[in-house]
Design a protein around this nucleic acid. Structure first.
Lengths: 146, 146
DNA sequence: TCATCATCTTGTAATGATTACAAAGTCACA
DNA sequence: TGTGACTTTGTAATCATTACAAGATGATGA
């Protein structure tokens, strides 16, 4: 039974790729599935390590290629929040990203970006908006006070 | 006369460094001066190439070191606007950065960041805020329409 | 004037993320 | 079963940044 359920789920991922004219190869479906189920803004390395068990022949180059295909299709967006490693986020609603400098965790927060910008950017065609905050999250903050 | 004027100007930069407990070496003063006079969000390479004429022995490592000292002292802030090279900005008022994907230029724009975020980030200590937009600037836009 | 000490600068080597590339694999279609 | 288009894979190359050790600088004190 588990297999059937899995097939159905995977098919929905495959469909998502077909909708964007991306051939749903095994690897691509798995990577998309991973991104949807792990919305923790993973790095290439995290994705690679996590899926290696399922697909032992997986290559890091494939992860890079696939993510770039997804970015091109606007399925995911890259985050460069003052980090040497790019992180990847399944695009949903516009939101900001906070990175804790101690634990390294990344937290989403709501931002109504369109409301407060506009005047200055008449005539600009905007294709991506990113709001990055850095600092210390509550958990690490109480930790360091001890 | 030019020399004297220069000395006075340089001294004001040196003072700025002393105020932050940074020893105002020749190289550091020059790099600070360059950043103040060229607020175009330069890369390490641009700074290095520009100052090489004045200080032929200048090393790229020094530029990196100095910029990191400045960042530590909050004199400048690094920009990572989906670029593989970090850019450096003399911190003034809070503002957003727009990068044109065609000409590569970076434009500042006004943003009242504090107004529209807050609720979600209770208990977070925020040390840096960045708003990055990507797209096509008006000049490149009219260019491509031809 | 000279020695000392701390700090800065410099060149080079190392690191590490990302991309380039060519060979091998996969899959649909005739 | 063969062909062709497209993917995957491993490795080599690229490039920004950092690490490190040796040399330069500059202030201080005898």
């Amino acid at each position: 039974m588990k297999e059937v359920v899995n097939m159905v789920i995977i098919d929905s991922f495959a469909q998502k790729l077909l909708d964007r004219n991306i051939i749903p190869s095994h690897q691509r479906v798995l990577i998309l599935k991973y991104l949807v189920e792990n919305q923790c803004h993973p790095t290439v390395d995290q994705i690679f390590s996590a899926l290696r068990g399922e697909v032992p022949t997986l290559s890091k180059a494939t992860v890079y290629n696939t993510l770039n295909v997804f970015i091109e299709a606007k399925l995911v967006r890259p985050l460069s929040i003052e980090d040497n490693e790019t992180r990847y986020d399944i695009v949903t609603v516009d939101h900001g990203h906070f990175k804790c400098s101690i634990c390294g965790g990344i937290v989403n927060f709501a931002v109504d970006i369109d409301r407060f910008v506009a005047a200055d950017l008449q005539g600009f065609r905007i294709t991506a908006k990113n709001v990055y905050f850095n600092g210390i999250c509550p958990a690490c903050h109480t930790q360091t006070e001890k």
